[in-house]
C-alpha cells in the first residue's frame, strides 16, 4: 500500500487534550492517509504514539469506523436500522446491489464505491439516510440516490 504512511511514520498527531486521548485521532489520521487500518497503519500509529502495537490493534478493531480491509474511493454508509427500514432502506440496498454489484462490505471492481450497512446514523426523522464519506444524505428514494452518487467519481 502506497501513501504517506509508506515510511512507517505518521505525518501528524492531532492535539486533543491529554496524551491518552491521542490514539483515536491518530487512527483517524492514519486511516485518512492510508485508506484503512492495515497492519502497517497500526504499526505507524503505535510507533508515533509509543503505544504497544497490540493495544492499538485491540482498540482499532473495536470501532466500526476503522476499516478492516481496503476500501474504495468513496464509502457509502447506508443506515439499515429500524426507522430507515420502515422507510425503505432495504429496497435501496437491493437497488445498489443491482446497479453496482456490491453487497454490504464489498467494493466495486473499479474501486469507486464501498458499501457499508450501518446501524442508526441519527437521521431517523428523515429516513432513509446515508453517509457518503463525510456527507449526509437524507430522505433518500430509489430515484434520488443514484443522482446523488453520480457526484462521486
Amino acid at each position: 500500500m502506497k501513501g504517506p504512511l509508506e515510511n512507517g511514520t505518521l505525518k501528524s498527531v492531532p492535539e486533543c487534550g491529554e496524551k491518552e486521548t491521542a490514539l483515536m485521532p491518530a487512527l483517524y489520521t492514519a486511516q485518512k492517509e492510508h485508506g484503512w487500518m492495515s497492519i502497517e497503519a497500526m504499526e505507524a500509529v503505535a510507533g508515533a504514539l509509543d503505544i504497544p502495537k497490540a493495544r492499538v490493534k485491540g482498540f482499532a478493531t473495536f470501532y466500526d469506523m476503522f476499516g478492516k480491509k481496503p476500501v474504495g474511493r468513496h464509502v457509502v454508509r447506508l443506515c439499515t436500522n429500524v426507522s430507515c427500514i420502515l422507510s425503505g432502506s432495504e429496497e435501496l440496498l437491493l437497488r445498489l446491489r443491482d446497479k453496482f454489484g456490491i453487497a454490504p462490505d464489498e467494493t466495486t471492481p473499479d474501486g469507486r464505491f464501498s458499501l457499508v450497512a450501518m446501524e442508526c446514523i441519527g437521521a431517523c426523522g428523515t429516513a432513509p439516510a446515508m453517509l457518503v464519506d463525510n456527507d449526509f444524505y437524507e430522505d433518500l428514494t430509489t430515484e434520488n440516490i443514484f443522482s446523488i452518487l453520480e457526484k462521486y467519481k
Binding site: 486521548t21 483515536m24 470501532y63 466500526d64
Partner: peptide, 12 residues
Amino acid sequence: FHLFVYFGAGAY
C-alpha cells in the same frame, strides 16, 4: 476551562 471534541468511531 478548555474544551475539546473527541470524535468517536462507531461503537454504541
